[in-house]
C-alpha cells in the first residue's frame, strides 16, 4: 500500500535520508521488535521505536508503575502510578504514533515462556534489570537464532552490545555465568542517573533500526561502554569464545533455563 500524505509527512525526516527512503521506511513499518522490560532502558527505546513507525512493538513487563520509576522511565507519567507498566507504555506509544501496533505481555519472562514470546519478533531488546533475565534472553535468542541488543546501566555507567546469529560473540561468551546473587550491585542498591537509560536505551533503539534497515555497522563483536563522569565512550573489541556454553562449538545449553533471582530483586 502506498504511503498516505500524512505518513509521508510523519516519516519525512526518515524518507529524506538516502539510507532510508520509502523502502527503508516500509521495512520499519513492517518490522516487529520486542522490548523486554518497560523501565529505564525500555522506556526511551519504546518511545523512539514507536515514533519511528516500527509496525509491531511487543513490550513485556510484569510490574506496575511505581513513584520511584519516574526519575528515569520517561514513558510513564505521574498519573500512571499503580497502573501496569505495559499498559502505561502502550498508551504513551499510541499517543505518539497511533499507526503502530503495541502488543503487551504482562508477565515475568521465564524459561517456560520466552521461546514462544520471541518467536514472532525480528529483533529483541533486553531492557531487564537482573542477570538471570539477561542470561535467559541471551540463551533464548542464540537458541532461536534471533538478533538482540543487550544493555546494562548502573550509577553513571552504561554498556551495550549487539548479537546477530552467526556473527560475533554472544553475551555468555563475555560473561559466561551470572555472578552469585547480590555479589554485584544492581540499580536498586547502587542507584543510576535517569538520563543513562535515555542514552543507552536510545542506542539500543538505534541498533534495532539499523538492523531492520540493513544499513551501517552494528555493535556486533564489540562492547560499547559509556562512563558519564569521565565523559568517555569506548568500543571494546570482544573475542569469541569457542567454548561458549550456548554459542560455542559444542554447546551444553540446548534449552533456556532460569537462574535463581537475587533476594532483593524479588517481589
Amino acid at each position: 500500500m502506498p504511503f498516505t500524505n500524512d505518513q509521508l509527512q510523519r516519516y519525512s525526516r526518515h524518507i529524506i535520508l538516502q539510507e532510508v527512503g520509502a523502502k527503508g521506511q516500509r521495512k520499519l513499518c513492517e518490522a516487529k521488535v520486542l522490548i523486554i522490560g518497560a523501565g529505564g532502558l525500555g522506556a526511551p527505546a519504546a518511545l523512539y521505536l514507536a515514533a519511528a513507525g516500527i509496525g509491531t512493538i511487543g513490550i513485556a513487563d510484569a510490574d506496575e508503575v511505581d513513584l520511584s520509576n519516574l526519575q528515569r522511565q520517561v514513558i510513564h507519567t505521574t498519573p500512571d502510578v499503580g497502573k501496569a507498566k505495559v499498559l502505561s507504555a502502550q498508551e504513551t506509544m499510541n499517543r505518539i504514533n497511533p499507526e503502530v501496533t503495541v502488543k503487551t505481555y504482562r508477565t515475568f519472562v521465564m524459561a517456560d515462556n520466552i521461546m514462544e514470546l520471541i518467536a514472532d519478533y525480528d529483533f529483541i531488546l533486553d531492557g531487564t534489570d537482573n542477570f538471570p533475565a539477561k542470561f535467559l534472553i541471551n540463551d533464548a535468542c542464540v537458541l532461536a537464532g534471533k538478533p538482540f541488543s543487550h544493555a546494562g546501566i548502573i550509577r553513571f555507567k552504561g554498556q551495550l552490545m549487539t548479537y546477530v546469529p552467526g556473527q560475533g560473540p554472544c553475551y555468555r561468551c563475555v560473561f559466561r555465568e551470572p555472578p552469585p546473587p547480590d555479589a554485584v550491585p544492581t540499580c536498586k542498591q547502587a542507584g543510576v542517573i535517569g538520563a543513562m537509560g535515555g542514552v543507552i536505551g536510545s542506542l539500543q533503539a538505534m541498533e534495532a533500526i539499523k538492523y531492520i534497515l540493513g544499513k551501517g555497522d552494528l555493535l556486533t563483536g564489540y562492547l560499547l561502554t559509556y562512563d558519564a563522569l569521565k565523559m568517555d565512550f569506548r568500543k571494546i573489541r570482544l573475542p569469541r569464545r569457542d567454548t561458549c556454553a550456548v554459542c560455542g562449538k559444542s554447546p551444553t545449553i540446548l534449552a533456556p533455563f532460569d537462574y535463581a533471582q537475587a533476594v532483593c530483586e524479588l517481589g
Binding site: N5, L8, Q9, R13, I15, G21
Partner: peptide, 18 residues
C-alpha cells in the same frame, strides 16, 4: 501540489523509488 515542504520532495522521492 497538495503538500508542503519537506513532503513535496519526499513524495517525489517516493514516486521515483517505485
Amino acid at each position: 501540489t497538495d503538500v508542503v515542504c519537506p513532503v513535496t520532495f519526499v513524495k517525489a522521492k517516493v514516486a521515483l523509488e517505485e
